[in-house]
């Protein structure tokens, strides 16, 4: 039925179909477009972080004081060291990934297998480090008091200028306060776990230790947190103190604005989820390589497409690193 086939006169020309002006396969191009949209999602989160930070620019926590821990190293403040290590691990796993892609172009199955294996190990080290970073942040280190207005008051030794942990000065008071459980109450409500010390114990400790002063969240002209005088310190805690805060969660944050913790959990969590799913996809591809799927297909483009995703995860981390830990 040749009469139903319209001839457009463009056969063999640019618009005649069958040409690939971008010289990229469908799958690769779609991976790129997915990456663009995912990049916009991450930008939305980071820009929202910037919004909140600009809104509270005068009292935002100083990241160097928050992330100071390195596993197996105790009693030392080492800002940035561990997160720099994590960054390096992720860049390194990006390198092994691109080496796997390169080996795939040369159809070297053994090399692809090994490089993919190393990439997976790198990803796992990163996710593990991220989990450790979360755990440390949730646990907290010094403890603080939150005021009725939601401000965070931290404690400093007036003589040495060093931060004081609650356990350094709080005086334990014998009391009968028991955690309220859902099974006991008439409204089936329960309360969260208790902090190590309560507000009265902190106030009692402040009264007996004359060297304890309060540090507020307000940043001075030098970009340092404001220290209060001894009298003002006592007054702040006695009159405005509401509860003791240890560590950080979505509601309270001993390091300052709860928004800082919220964004930290959300953005690094979303990124960590990307790394985790990247590892899972890498494992699937890894087994496909071992089984010889791509050998039979006569090209390793699937490794390249997954590689694009993996590099993107690294790319996002570069920005998270800058805006959460450096700037």
């Amino acid at each position: 039925m040749s009469s139903t086939l319209a001839s457009t006169g463009t056969e063999g020309k640019t618009w005649g179909g069958g040409s690939a002006p971008l010289k990229a396969s469908y799958g690769k191009m779609m991976m790129w477009f997915f990456i663009v949209s995912d990049a916009l999602t991450f930008s939305g989160f980071l820009a929202a972080y910037g919004f909140s930070r600009f809104k509270y620019i005068g009292s935002w926590p100083i990241a160097d004081e928050v992330f100071t821990h390195v596993p197996f190293v105790h009693g030392q403040e080492l800002p940035m060291i561990y997160v720099a290590f994590m960054t390096f691990v992720l860049i390194m796993s990006s390198v092994t990934m691109v080496l796997a892609v390169d080996a795939g172009h040369h159809m070297k199955k053994t090399k692809v297998t090994w490089y993919l294996f190393l990439t997976i190990i790198g990803g796992l080290i990163f996710v593990g480090s991220q989990a450790w970073e979360w755990a440390t942040f949730i646990k907290g280190d010094y403890g603080a008091v939150q005021t009725k207005g939601g401000q965070i008051l931290q404690f400093v030794d007036a003589e040495t200028g060093h931060r004081l942990a609650l356990k350094d000065f709080a005086t334990p008071i014998e009391s009968e306060r028991v955690q309220h459980l859902a099974k006991n109450g008439i409204w089936f409500e329960s309360e969260g776990s208790h902090t190590t010390f309560n507000l009265q114990e902190v106030i009692a400790g402040m009264e007996t230790h004359s060297n304890v002063i309060v540090r507020t969240q307000t940043l001075n002209a030098q970009g340092e947190k404001t220290l209060l005088s001894r009298d003002a310190s006592l007054q702040q805690v006695r009159n405005y103190g509401r509860q003791v805060v240890e560590g950080a969660n979505l509601k309270v944050n001993e390091y300052g604005s709860p928004l800082f913790a919220d964004f930290f959990f959300f953005i690094t969590g979303f990124h960590g989820f990307h790394v985790f799913s990247g590892v899972v996809i890498n494992i699937i591809i890894f087994f496909n390589v071992i089984l010889g799927t791509y050998e039979r297909r006569k090209n390793y483009e699937m490794v390249e497409k997954v590689g694009l995703y993996w590099h993107f995860v690294d790319l996002v981390w570069v920005f998270v690193f800058t805006f959460f830990y450096l700037v």
Binding site: M97, V98, V101, G307, H311, L315, V318
Partner: peptide, 8 residues
């Protein structure tokens, strides 16, 4: 450099 060289 990540985009240009690692992602080709």
């Amino acid at each position: 450099y990540i985009t240009w060289d690692f992602m080709h």
